[in-house]
């Protein structure tokens, strides 16, 4: 009896988590999928309309703005955060003094929530309060920096704030990766007379491939889910020019009584996340076996 229990104990302990996961994650994903094929408006209702909600979704100009913004935001955010994070990590890895203190400083934005980041950058980027006013007060009266209030540029202010928040975290990931690189590899490269640049480019970075991969996956799902940052920084504006799929979904499902349409947009977002995660998981799992 006792032996049996002991054997089953791990399963018993895992069971509640597994059930909660099944119901709260996959169950609700399934439910949202079903909702996206119904006519649901204010509350769920079970009148099925096929792909109509998806057709309406892709006929909506605001949705296309949101998708374009997502593309711009995701690409720029990932690339800039990666480059900046890598650069900081490499510089910190050069055995400089007080690197512990510097590391903390760069990591610190991570401790702040996106809401706080968004609000702070909203003030910093506001032409009448922030950078533009400061530079003008310094005497450069023609200086203009109005991305926040320019419908064509507003999405880039979200990139700025998101990069500021996340590049310290990317740096930490890379730093851990760099510290994990076998010293003998670097020594060997130096013995062969490779320059510092060549050592990094041809020896160290290839070893860090998994770290790159991990960073990209984490950053891309931060990008696709981003909601609070947009909400607090631009509120999706001016107009709806900086809307992202997540804010679109929230608006339509919860404040505009278009639950079916909101569910459809949520499913499209899920498809986007899957497109990134599934190949990653596949390569990870396959890699482990071989």
């Amino acid at each position: 009896m006792f032996d049996y229990l002991e054997k089953q104990l791990p399963k018993l302990i895992m069971a509640p988590t597994a059930i909660v996961m099944l119901v709260c994650m996959y169950g609700f994903i399934g439910w949202t999928a079903v909702l996206s094929f119904t006519k649901s408006r204010m509350l769920p209702q079970w009148e099925f309309v096929g792909w109509e909600q998806y057709e309406r979704l892709f006929a909506n100009p605001r949705w296309h703005v949101a998708l374009d913004n997502l593309l711009v935001f995701t690409l720029l955010f990932i690339i800039i955060a990666l480059l900046l994070g890598l650069m900081l990590a490499i510089l910190l890895d050069r055995n400089i003094r007080n690197d512990g203190a510097l590391r903390t400083i760069y990591l610190y934005p991570m401790a702040v929530s996106f809401i706080v980041t968004g609000t702070a950058w909203k003030w910093i980027l506001n032409p009448g309060l922030g950078i533009e006013k400061m530079v003008r007060d310094l005497g450069f009266t023609d200086f203009e920096f109005r991305w926040l209030v320019d419908p064509d540029m507003a999405i880039y202010t979200i990139v700025i704030a998101a990069v500021w928040q996340s590049s310290g975290f990317v740096m930490a990931m890379f730093l851990a990766g760099l510290r994990g690189v076998d010293d003998s590899l670097i020594k060997a490269a130096q013995m062969d007379g490779a320059s510092t640049f060549r050592t990094y480019w041809h020896v160290i970075l290839p070893v860090m491939r998994p770290v790159f991969f991990g960073a990209v996956v984490i950053l891309s799902h931060i990008a696709i889910k981003s909601f609070d940052l947009v909400q607090s920084l631009t509120g999706g504006g001016p107009g709806y020019s900086s809307d992202l799929p997540a804010t679109f979904m929230y608006t339509h499902a919860f404040s505009r009584a278009q639950m079916g349409l909101g569910a459809a947009s949520a499913m499209v977002m899920l498809a986007g996340v899957m497109a990134i995660i599934v190949p990653y998981l596949y390569s990870e799992l396959r890699g482990k076996k071989s």
């Binding site: 408006r41 001016p238 107009g239 709806y240 020019s241 339509h252 404040s255 505009r256 009584a257 278009q258």
Partner: peptide
């Protein structure tokens, strides 16, 4: 709410472009 949302979108998009 659906229609007023549509009007909101059009008005705000127009005013900010």
């Amino acid at each position: 709410e659906a229609i007023s949302g549509a009007i909101y979108d059009s008005a705000t998009q127009f005013f900010n472009s």
